[in-house]
Design a protein around this nucleic acid. Sequence first.
DNA 1: GTAGGGTCTGACAGCGCTGTAAGGGTCAAG
DNA 2: CTTGACCCTTACAGCGCTGTCAGACCCTAC
Lengths: 115, 115
Amino acid sequence: MKIGELSRRTGVSVRMLRYYEAEGLLAPLRTESGYRDYGPEEEQTVRRIKMLGAAGMTLETIQRLLPCVRNNDPAFTPCNELRRILAQQVGLIDERIETLSQSRTILAGYLASVN
Amino acid sequence: MKIGELSRRTGVSVRMLRYYEAEGLLAPLRTESGYRDYGPEEEQTVRRIKMLGAAGMTLETIQRLLPCVRNNDPAFTPCNELRRILAQQVGLIDERIETLSQSRTILAGYLASVN
DNA sequence: GTAGGGTCTGACAGCGCTGTAAGGGTCAAG
DNA sequence: CTTGACCCTTACAGCGCTGTCAGACCCTAC
């Protein structure tokens, strides 16, 4: 299928589909006239990217994780780096939450002092 | 005092001090030769900016809040927008934390499924 | 053939800072 | 007078996407 249809089917913008390719996460065939030609396999991949992206991952991280993804459900093939990357991501998120929580505390303090 | 000294005294980089000015948060005098000349008042302002920045605020938000800040401690003059802005900021942070928490949940689920 | 819709590439813009570098004055000490 | 530390402005780069626009080709249908 062409890029427009894939975009419609997955809800990912044409712009981003091309971006995925530029970043090396996707490598669709090309028609003779140069149009991208996506197969069902590629559609799967896009859904997986979307799924991992929803978990807040960077495309760069997703790229490293992609070979380990088996389904669109959370099902993975145990690659060696897999656990490490996932754990690292959780740690990263925890850090961010911690930072935000501190900011929140500070702001709440300000807010209280205004009363 | 000149920018280098202010930078040393506040721990804010020279680059950022100039940036504050470009963004309209600071307006130091100028010597005849064009050097920025900061007074103690300006140093106070920089400390306030730093304080609010530590709470995760954007310079743009800080700018709107700055006229209401009385001390370097969390002490404000009750401007009309003050409470609204602070509450809004807390809400913003809560949203971000919520998003991150969801991501965390998703990732933790993945991690669990790998075991 | 021509219009209209889809696709292509390349590139600029924006978010909110922050560093760095280039090219060039200023100022105090020796 | 020269050196060296400091200051000035301007502007590019990077983070991680994402939209949009320009200029141009492809394809289908009327």
